[in-house]
Design a protein around this nucleic acid. Structure first.
Lengths: 307, 307
DNA sequence: TATCCTTACGGAATTCGTAAGCATG
DNA sequence: CATGCTTACGAATTCCGTAAGGATA
């Protein structure tokens, strides 16, 4: 058993049991991949993969256990590398963050600027992705931090820390009829076509839920990945926008007005997430503390232990 | 980084930084050991060991972390082997138990007989050792189960399950004056030389504590590793014996009488212990259930997770 | 001086990749 | 017939052990 064999079976699972792809991902030959798998199976005295003829189809029952252990070993071996860099290159390296558009665009810039000032030699990599993808990326182990609003919970391999509460706002053009009424209601909004986020993004579930509870079926005329797109179409008069209120900037969004709608939609909570068991360089903890001072290194370490 | 390098640094620590011994323990050459260490240090970009000239003296600060990660990786790699055997050779293998004389001699024989009947192809290895050594052996990872009365607690790497309560008894020759009095007291016992267990063994601490609390300084004339030795000397008239009452057998110990002394000494609890994170073959769980039916596989697995 | 670690070096073993062959859908 | 896995084989690399050299207590 060696590390390469373990990397290979892990990658084979990730690549849907396609050895050719796995070999490419690991920068090696597919013949070697094939041989390594057979060698490992022989050494362990069992079949890891279910085969039909020459094709691999899935994991056998023992194979699932074997891969689970392999994942743990590889996680620790990656920790070994991170750990040694922590000592040999204290404040240089890479901070990798997976996050959504909204966070990247409206929440992180300030924090990242501060961080860059403190750690000029740390390379920053932002993976922009959906909350679901963020969870997958975190588990995969190429990323230190995930930041998003939805769907990061309920995974034993991920620890989340809520760090910011925010609410949706309604944006309309400056001359919109909604501006005349005193209090904003769901019914009033639903009189117009609505433009908001795609499903699963930036609290979209809260929006749907609010209308559903009120027994109103809104006309979602368009949905988009980010507030910039939404605002552009609202400006064109295509409908009423519902966005995260932090995405509105009175100075830049001249033609638009933001209406407070915190009484209409449930509050949203943005969370920060880390892979359980992954070693974090000290600058990762510093970044977290810049983003949310109450989430201290100690608190994160504590959470790693419990469950 | 490869497994051999990790094994080498782990063994080097265990062998007190003597590379020659480490090489012998790993059945390899000491030049190879030396080279592997240097290679690993170079790859990680840091020094694992503190050196004076050519001698290794201890671990550097990063070295401690590195070794800790190495231990986790190696633990999992051993799990990989155990796990695969679990599938490839279901009911054959080795059950390794570290235990004290008292347990091995008086508690385990019945259970082992039953176990052997259920699992004729499982080789049984009993490591007889002191409670302290048992903890060390468990942590070292060569043993599935530890069974003892004292000193297995307070180690995060070990999980203990109390499984049996017992008390000490006093053994005297058939014609001993103590047999005439009605109720046995510590004072009465202390009138005679006492023969009992060595320090740290089989509840000896409870015996000492009882006398200390009563303000009595007993004359411990002899101490031994096991009750058989103690009984032999009591039979010779050298003193009063204090032993685990399970170690007395009316049929075999003709010349002796056992006096109940459960009111004099604190009750003892024997525990069963496993290494946290070590994979246990299913027959290990079956053995545990034979020994103590209330300690189910499920309960052990639960305890592995919490802390 | 006896013990212990490092370095050098040659041989053994392992690993890797190309290429050809074969199976699958 | 295009994609994907296995096997064969030679090349490259890594690993290992002997032996000699040098440091340490």
């Amino acid at each position: 058993m060696n590390f390469q064999q373990l990397r290979i079976i892990r990658e084979t699972v990730r690549r849907n049991f396609n050895l050719t792809e796995a070999a490419q991902a690991l920068l090696t030959s597919q013949s070697g991949v094939s041989k390594h798998i057979r060698d490992l199976e022989e050494e362990l005295g069992l079949e890891i993969f279910v085969r039909r003829g020459k094709r691999l189809l899935g994991l056998t029952e023992p194979g699932q256990e074997v891969v689970a252990v392999a994942e743990r070993i590889l996680l620790e071996s990656e920790n070994m590398m991170l750990l040694s860099q922590q000592f040999s290159k204290r404040d240089t390296g890479t901070l990798s963050i997976a996050t959504t558009h909204t966070q990247a665009r409206y929440m992180l810039p300030e924090v990242i600027a501060k961080f860059k000032a403190d750690f000029p030699d740390v390379r920053l990599v932002l993976h922009q992705a959906s909350p679901k993808e963020i969870a997958a990326i975190l588990l995969e182990g190429s990323t230190d931090l995930g930041i998003a609003t939805d769907a990061l919970e309920d995974n034993a391999g991920i620890i989340t820390f809520p760090y910011h509460r925010w609410s949706h706002g309604v944006v309309v053009p400056k001359d919109h009829p909604l501006l005349t009424s005193n209090t904003l209601t769901l019914e009033a909004i639903a009189d117009y076509p609505i433009i908001t986020y795609d499903e699963g993004l930036t609290g979209r579930t809260r929006i749907d839920k609010a209308f559903e509870r009120a027994g109103i079926e809104p006309d979602i005329a368009m949905s988009a990945l980010d507030a910039d797109v939404i605002k552009a179409y609202v400006e064109l008069g295509l409908g009423v926008g519902i966005i995260a209120s932090m995405a509105f900037n009175a100075n830049r969004d001249h033609g638009l007005v933001l209406l407070n709608s915190s009484h209409l939609f449930e509050e949203n909570v943005s969370s920060l997430a880390v892979r359980r068991g992954r070693f974090l360089r000290s600058y990762v903890y510093r970044f977290i503390e810049l983003l949310a001072p109450e989430i201290t290194e100690q608190r994160v370490r504590r959470a790693e232990l419990g469950r």
